[in-house]
């Protein structure tokens, strides 16, 4: 199994490197495109068309963008990365993690493919979050080459992330569809506000996980698209401004979710990180946290994903 995993890793590595080399080679700065591509007719004609593109109706999104980017995005981001972990820290200190019997019976919860997809997704998404934050707070880390590299890594990670994100949408959606019991779960807040180990209503994935799933995939798609627009300036300036506003706003939301997921995955449930690596959850955990999940010993073993 390990071999398969490493093969896949290498393959991804080659793929990324190859893709990077291919694109890099194409972007040879010495071979600038023919000048004729730059303009169609005369300067007057070009810039007449351009003025609408270039200045847009600044009052519309330009001013909004400037105000948001200048004042609010970084404040909101700062708030997110301090308050959210802060709340969880509080939770950890007060309520603490949930422990389940690791030595008891294990249930295969995450087949290999799931784990591989999740691994790549997690890695690239983490890089996205990290580099994104570096860009937001660039001026405090000196700008220049470091942040420029962060920007490039942000793009690379985005490209890598698309693959696992798409695959997630293929392998998980059935289990991620909302059910009636999700409302009950939400009311209970998943049982995380109590130290007791009482079964909570959740299928294979609970409401929180479902919300996170859809945010990351669909929200990620929006992020990818708006990010692409910003990267390539591939639209009129008003659309680019709007894309930047959406990207930053949604980004902050995803950041909050991400931090939540991190806390849940790493701290709030003891052993959940190991579960993600091995694929097995303690039966006790499944019975409590995913009480509606119908699993069968024999059949589960055959599941591929």
């Amino acid at each position: 199994m390990q071999r398969v995993f490493y093969c896949l890793l290498l393959l991804t590595g080659f793929f990324t490197a190859g893709f990077a080399a291919f694109v890099y080679a194409r972007e040879d700065p010495a071979a600038a495109g023919p000048i004729a591509d730059l303009l169609t007719v005369s300067s007057a004609d070009y810039y007449q068309a351009l003025i609408a593109e270039v200045a847009g109706n600044w009052q519309n999104y330009g001013q909004l963008f400037t105000t948001l980017q200048g004042q609010w995005f970084w404040k909101a981001s700062l708030l997110t990365i301090t308050v959210v972990p802060g709340l969880f820290l509080l939770h950890y200190l007060v309520i603490g993690a949930k422990h389940f019997d690791q030595g008891g019976e294990q249930v295969l919860f995450f087949p290999l493919l799931t784990r591989v997809v999740h691994f790549f997704g997690a890695l690239s998404f983490s890089l996205l979050v990290l580099t994104g934050l570096m860009i937001v707070f660039g001026k405090y880390i000196g700008g220049g080459t470091l942040i420029r590299s962060a920007r490039y890594v942000h793009l690379l990670s985005a490209m890598v992330f698309v693959v696992p994100a798409c695959m997630m949408l293929v392998i998980w959606p059935k289990d991620m569809l909302p059910r009636r019991h999700d409302i009950a779960w939400l009311v209970l807040l998943g049982g995380y506000l109590s130290r007791r180990k009482k079964p909570v209503p959740a299928g294979k994935f609970n409401a929180g996980q479902k919300m996170y799933f859809w945010s990351v995939t669909l929200g990620g798609a929006v992020m990818a698209f708006t990010g692409y627009v910003i990267w390539g300036m591939g639209a009129d300036v008003e659309s680019v401004r709007l894309a930047a506003i959406m990207h930053n706003t949604l980004g902050m939301g995803l950041l909050a979710f991400y931090l939540t997921h991190l806390y849940m995955a790493v701290f709030a449930i003891a052993g959940s990180l190991q579960s993600m690596k091995s694929g097995y959850k303690p039966k006790e955990e499944v019975d409590i946290l995913h009480s509606r999940y119908k699993y069968q010993q024999g059949q589960e073993a055959k599941r591929r994903f």
């Binding site: 330009g62 963008f65 980017q69 680019v240």
Partner: peptide
Amino acid sequence: IGCGYCFMA
């Protein structure tokens, strides 16, 4: 870093 925000603004 060439992010382009100044152009948008």
